[in-house]
């Protein structure tokens, strides 16, 4: 069900804000980084931090998951944005792919 309605924000009663409560039914996509024998751990951490804006600890977690498990899901969401992230990861020469969530 989709609906759009106006709400009054508590901090500024004079301003009406449109809140979009539509729920997307499209299945989300995931961005997966795969292990490779050439790229260094430090480079993968830095690339994840720069592209996704993650804190160092979170980027390290994903990198070590790639290193030990062979892959890590680093992001999920809309297909177009997932494609953009994979494009950027490929430009950074990391091995990355798109997957439908749950595949």
């Amino acid at each position: 069900m989709m609906s759009i309605h106006a709400v009054d924000p508590l901090d500024d009663p004079g301003t009406a804000v449109m809140e979009d409560t539509r729920i997307s039914t499209a299945a989300p996509w995931t961005v997966v980084i795969h292990d490779d024998p050439v790229n260094t751990i430090e480079y993968v951490i830095l690339t994840i931090q720069r592209l996704f804006g993650y804190a160092r600890a979170k980027a390290e977690h994903h990198t070590m998951e790639v290193h030990h498990m062979g892959r890590s899901i680093v992001w999920n969401g809309a297909k177009e944005k997932a494609e953009l992230y994979v494009h950027q990861l490929h430009a950074a020469q990391l091995k990355a792919s798109l997957e439908r969530a749950g595949e």
Binding site: E83, V86, H90, Q93, K95, A96, S97, L98, E99, E103
Partner: peptide, 13 residues
């Protein structure tokens, strides 16, 4: 070719 023409999906897909 591994990085100049990368596969964006699982090769099995």
């Amino acid at each position: 070719e591994r990085f100049r023409a990368p596969d964006p999906l699982d090769p099995e897909n």
